[in-house]
Write a protein that binds this DNA or RNA. Sequence first.
DNA 1: CTATTGCCTTGACTTTGATCAATCGCGTCT
DNA 2: AGACGCGATTGATCAAAGTCAAGGCAATAG
Lengths: 241, 241
Amino acid sequence: MDAHRKDIHNSELPVLCRACEARHRGVCGALTPSQLVSLNKQSTRKSVEAGTELIGESQESRTYSNIISGVVKLTKMMSDGRQQIVGLQFAPDFLGRPFRIDSGISADAATDVNVCSFPKTVIERMIKEAPELEHRLLEQTLKELDEARDWMLTLGRKTAAEKVASFLYLIATHVNPDAESDSVSFQLPLTRSDIADFLGLTIETVSRQLTKLRKDRVILIVNNRHVEVPDLDALAERASQ
Amino acid sequence: MDAHRKDIHNSELPVLCRACEARHRGVCGALTPSQLVSLNKQSTRKSVEAGTELIGESQESRTYSNIISGVVKLTKMMSDGRQQIVGLQFAPDFLGRPFRIDSGISADAATDVNVCSFPKTVIERMIKEAPELEHRLLEQTLKELDEARDWMLTLGRKTAAEKVASFLYLIATHVNPDAESDSVSFQLPLTRSDIADFLGLTIETVSRQLTKLRKDRVILIVNNRHVEVPDLDALAERASQ
DNA sequence: CTATTGCCTTGACTTTGATCAATCGCGTCT
DNA sequence: AGACGCGATTGATCAAAGTCAAGGCAATAG
């Protein structure tokens, strides 16, 4: 399987792909160097700022993308305005859904985001040529399904205090995936309002629970966005995880 | 793509497969008659009664299954006993997760269930031979992901009254998928306790909300399990859907 | 340099759904 | 028949989270 990748011959790869995480952990890892070259000719790097809608009601997007950096939030909205964030995507996640029509979800940049975009047609053709690509998509989809179900437990059964701790734990472990030490420091990719929409709470409750965690010395709030966690296990404990 | 199926030559198919929904709407539809014959030799029909654990902590199951009839609930549990149903599966859904290790989910028969089981090894070999099979799995996984995210909105943002109405609407539309009329009659596949675990509520709240829907004549509770919905749109209204 | 704005926090009060407890209906076992 | 168990309903009370309202802080605009 890995024999196709020929990582040694890095020089065969498009410059942009060489340092790209998506080629290792993302879907591009399923492609041969020559497929990468051909895909690369049709791909464009884009930089979008926080708040931009990437996929949504407005424009039927004609592209798929890999997230290069930043955080994308997937949101569902009710007709009366209530909304729920149903997923967060980090690099090198794949953005878009081949073979499946939209399901009322919009994707917005939660932070400033860099993506690598490809025309849908190109990806759909490549999937037919390279079954391994579809396999990667299945694996990412299964991962997203697991995350969604984990979060259903959080939404349905955890208290506000546990929810906020769970969120912080999620971010702490995603921002720095290979954290050896048990202490972490990071920027929150979401506003209080986004956090509330992710947790099924109000911003006031989120704020109060953050304050409580701070007073209990489980976290350190350097400023609104910057959080430090001296002991990840203690945080996990608060999240009942 | 459909050319492979050769539905006309029904006589080539294994007897058990001929009337099986999974061959049409389920994953078996991806297989040629000869593949079906070979798969059929290794498959076994099983009938399990409500409450039986199909996949779980206890035994590392060596098989995948198609649901032939009945309802399967997917449950996540916290160490202190709180639990959340994270998905319901109906015929002809595929049960099991190729290429992905267990994620703390157990699958139990919510009602009496009939399944058609295959050894994991056989399925995994067939996936390599027939990319279309993997394509079907991706499609089912995407469907489950959509359903999970729909439910996240329900769990995070709907009131108890809306949650219960949403659940009834979900069952009403799944039990009789091709309901022409706007009135439906069905058996609830879950106990009140299961419904509560699905909705992130207590059984008392579920009961009260059902009573309220009954008093408001949105539903008719024939007996504990048997419900009639005279007007599906009115129910959808209550679910804010 | 002050005014405005957006985002967040804090406090007082209300509401929703949870908890605790009693009772009912129904099937089953003796 | 009577006793029991199990699931569901109903009521009374309580607690957690929501709502409403005021104010703080920091960045940006005038």
